[in-house]
Design a protein around this nucleic acid. Structure first.
Length: 469
RNA sequence: GGCGCGGUCGCCAAGUGGUAAGGCCGAGGACUGCAAAUCCUCUAUCGUCGGUUCGAUUCCGACCCGCGCCUCCA
């Protein structure tokens, strides 16, 4: 079995395998750490994680690099606002990001470089570009990439230079167009300005800081070499970020940069892109505060194809939570150690194979989940042996998708207010005394307060009604 | 203006040139003091109009609607 994955560069599907025949080397553009990641950001990282888990499960060794962007306009601006140093500020958000990833069961990359820690690499790369005539220092002191020197510019996004409308997105940051040879040229090194405060690094072009694009080129080449297998990020990074990375990197090395480009579509809310200005940003903390487990979000994010926008609603999250809870019910009683020595094909049964095939077709996670559910139908009617085999399949699939084997005990359980607890206990007493009317009234009272009580053998459980998983 | 994506059951979402996976919700049943959970069963002709074809939701064209990118947004 091999994975065919759509390549943004060619707009065709390629079979995924390591260029060097040994290790699949890939780079993912990581977060800019100036605030909490929103669940749209997390979609990208979850899909990249599934990609990695899947190719590893196919027996391919990987080297996964995901950077931390800790120097740019936003990190500098926000750190100053917060009164912290850039380093203190970004480290705090990096820790938050790491926690979110952990909660979502995203594997840590093999290397997680910070842009600030690789400024020397970036400077060397810029020097190479200047030496070859691909970059120049302007009168304002900044260094720009000369787009006219790279004939293939636009090959990823397929935007023609002539068709690029100036500041079409109204996001133009620097008003430096008169300093550049062409307004399309982009900054490699930004000369220090007073508003940057203490955030400056020495360079052959004077104090300043690197441009965003050069950071990723330098870091990816540092860890993966001048040519590597795959580069990934959110779909919005195609232009200009990845286009510029290609231009810089290939102009400097004369070699192809990344073989394959893997882009993940956006998560939407109410049919629109998440953004601060629309006020429709959600974070993992908000998801958890509403009583959902991170795994439910992960399931939801997998329920749409990565090349298709996915519309987030609280209703769809609740649906994901319900489905996942049911699926995990089937995984109960599977010994995780069974998987340790399960590298054999005996596991490939009627459940496993269809899922594998779906994932091999351009990482079709929604189809995979669909056929998983089909496989699970009628499971309980099977004989013990078949059920055991099916459960091991399931466990292996969950591992591949990065889903947990069981939900954690409800996190809200410990936060039940005493008065709610008291009502529930009162109801339990009434039940034991077979005072059904009283018990039902108390249950309704609890429900009105947003708490649901469920009877279990020898006791009960209370949960928040929303996202009660 | 340029480039690109999409419109499939109430909601989410796959898919195919031969009459449409799956999930959630809902309905019915089993179970249960009643609920919940669980299990079983049921629920769509694919934006509009043309064309190609023996046959199109799937290919082509037009149109309508929604969305993304066009210099630092995942």
């Amino acid at each position: 079995m091999e994975l065919s994955l759509r390549n943004t560069l060619t707009r065709e599907s390629d079979v995924i395998g390591p260029l060097d025949g040994a290790t699949f080397r890939f780079y993912c553009c990581g977060p800019t750490v100036y605030g909490p990641a929103h669940i749209g950001n997390l979609r990208t990282f979850v899909l990249q994680d599934v990609f990695r888990r899947f190719i590893e499960s196919l027996g391919i060794e990987t080297c996964h690099v995901r950077n931390i962007t800790d120097v740019d306009d936003k990190t500098i601006r926000e750190s100053q606002r917060s009164g912290l140093s850039l380093q203190e500020f970004t480290q705090q958000w990096q820790r938050k990001f790491t926690n979110d990833c952990q909660a979502l069961n995203i594997l840590p990359p093999a290397h997680e470089p910070s842009a600030v820690a690789h400024i020397a690499d970036q400077i060397r790369l810029i020097e190479r570009l200047i030496d070859q005539g691909h970059a120049y220092q302007a009168e304002n002191g900044s260094v720009y990439f000369r787009i006219s020197s790279f004939k293939e510019y636009g090959k990823l996004s397929r935007l023609k230079l002539s068709g690029i409308q100036k500041n079409a997105s109204d996001r133009l940051v620097d008003n430096d167009e008169y300093d550049k040879e062409s307004w399309r040229d982009f900054a490699l090194w930004k000369t220090w300005k007073s508003e940057d405060g203490p955030n400056r690094w020495e360079s052959p072009w004077g104090p300043g800081r690197p441009g965003w694009h050069i950071e990723c080129s330098a870091m990816s080449m540092h860890y993966l070499g001048e040519s590597f297998d795959l580069h990934s990020g959110g779909i919005d990074l195609i232009f200009p970020h990845h286009e510029n990375e290609i231009a810089q990197s290939e102009a400097a090395t004369g070699k192809p940069f990344a073989q394959h480009w893997f882009h993940i579509a956006h998560l939407r809310v109410n049919g629109e892109k998440m953004s601060k200005s629309l006020g429709n940003l959600y974070t993992l903390d908000e998801v958890v505060d509403r009583g959902f487990q991170p795994a439910a979000l992960r399931y939801l994010l997998l329920s749409g194809h990565y090349r298709q926008p996915l519309n987030f609603t609280w209703e769809s999250l609740a649906a994901a939570a319900s489905t996942l809870r049911r699926i995990l019910g089937h995984a109960e009683g599977v010994d995780p150690e069974l998987l340790e020595n399960a590298g054999d094909t005996s596991l490939e049964t009627f459940i496993f194979n269809p899922v594998l095939e779906a994932l091999c077709e351009d990482l079709n996670t929604p189809k995979a989940l669909g056929v998983l559910n089909v496989g699970l139908q009628g499971l309980k009617a099977l004989d013990d042996g078949a059920q055991q085999a099916a459960r091991r399949d399931l466990a292996r699939i969950l591992q591949m998708l990065g889903l947990p084997w069981q939900f954690q005990k409800s996190r809200t359980e410990t936060r039940v207010p005493p008065e709610v607890e008291a009502l529930a206990l009162q109801r339990e007493k009434a039940r034991i005394a077979h005072k059904w009317d009283e018990a039902d009234l108390l249950r309704e009272a609890l429900l009105k307060q947003g708490w649901e009580v469920r009877d279990e053998v020898g006791g009960f459980e209370i949960n928040r009604t929303e996202g009660n998983v």
